[in-house]
Design a binder for these strands. Structure first.
Lengths: 212, 212
DNA sequence: GTCTATAGAGTGATAGAC
DNA sequence: GTCTATCACTCTATAGAC
């Protein structure tokens, strides 16, 4: 961290403190202390707390945009598993974004509105994976109208509230990407065709049972 | 509200304000203003803010305990649908409890630890419904180990983060119990046997499509 | 670019009169 | 039971020296 400029240090420290204490509970003094500068100096680099939050949001926004744009023409099972790994990393990097949902909505409408955009993109992307894999004969025909819309939404919820879920259940152990991904794949499992099950066993099981 | 005593008025107003503004953002002055008393008087009835929160938690605790104890010897589909209706009412009565998750964990460890107890009871209750209905021939044999544990957990997540989900997606319309219950039933649907599908169509569909 | 010092607006809690 | 007045404290933001 020694070769970073002060502005970058502030952002890194802010993200860390937001994750530990929540957006609303982080004091400017804490951020300043964390990197050994004064609050006055902090104010020189960022006009106010909102400006810090805004800058953090830009970093976060770049990360999620990159994950979402990785969706390509061949959204097969491996591709989805890969994207799930990316989501997991994102979750680990910005827990506050998923835990402080309401506080963010209140304190920072701009983060909230960008979130809504990403959420809708993410859900429709997951939804399209079902269509594609249905055509490939991997996923069965929709049993009931709205079932896949519902499933896409459920998968998004399970991903996004992963931290909140663990917190509410009092699960303190170190979360692994394998457990995370298995949770999501289990939602999809009952919709696999026989061919889908075979592909899942061959390609995905090794990834969630024997991590590289 | 005219025939309630001051203590009860304080609790009702507090719940309302917690739901509107979040636990941490409600000022003692606001609560006092809401029912037309002074902050000094508020302090006479409740030693401090924590005491108010504690009392609200007792109400909340009674409500959820009652819902959970309604699980009886015959946990059939109708019974579960009925319990889902109860959960929905509970969600509508105490949104703050499901939205301020992390804030509650930080401000009130006693609420948090009681929550964990209820969560674990709720999930294991849902899990037992699968066993029972599997024996009844309504639910298929478990396709993969851990699938029903996973499903029980997913159902709990979908219920508990219903408000948070709507908030993140920016859904503002009036939520109906039918949409809520349909979301949960859709998670169960792929696991119905043929007999299960028939029972679902006959008994549950009318309840989620044509509300009484 | 960085610091110290302080203004200014809350916020919870308490003392004491009625 | 209910009020007013006030204390002690926290936090953001800003002014001005170096």
């Amino acid at each position: 961290m020694a070769d970073l400029n002060t502005k970058q240090k502030i952002l890194i420290a802010s993200i860390q403190l937001f994750n530990e204490n929540g957006l609303a509970n982080v004091r400017l003094q804490q951020i300043a202390d964390e990197i050994g500068i004064s609050v006055g100096n902090l104010a020189y680099h960022f006009k106010n707390k909102e400006a810090i939050i805004e800058a953090v949001n830009e970093n976060l926004d770049d990360d999620i945009t990159e994950i979402l744009s990785a969706y390509r023409l061949f959204p097969n099972l491996i591709d989805f598993d890969y994207q799930l790994s990316k989501y997991f990393s994102f979750l680990q990097k910005y827990p506050f974004y998923f835990l402080d949902l309401l506080e963010i909505e209140r304190m920072s409408p701009s983060i909230h509105s960008k979130r809504q955009h990403h959420v809708s993109k993410m859900i429709s992307q997951i939804r399209r994976r079902f269509d594609f894999n249905q055509r490939r004969g991997i996923i069965i025909k929709e049993l009931r109208e709205g079932l896949y819309d519902n499933l896409a939404n459920s998968i998004w919820v399970m991903i996004s509230f992963w931290h909140a879920q663990n917190s509410a259940r009092g699960i303190n152990g170190i979360p692994t990407p394998e457990k995370f991904k298995e949770m999501v794949w289990n939602l999809v499992y009952p919709y696999f065709t026989e061919a889908g099950k075979r592909e899942f066993e061959q390609l995905i099981i090794p990834l969630i049972k024997h991590p590289s």
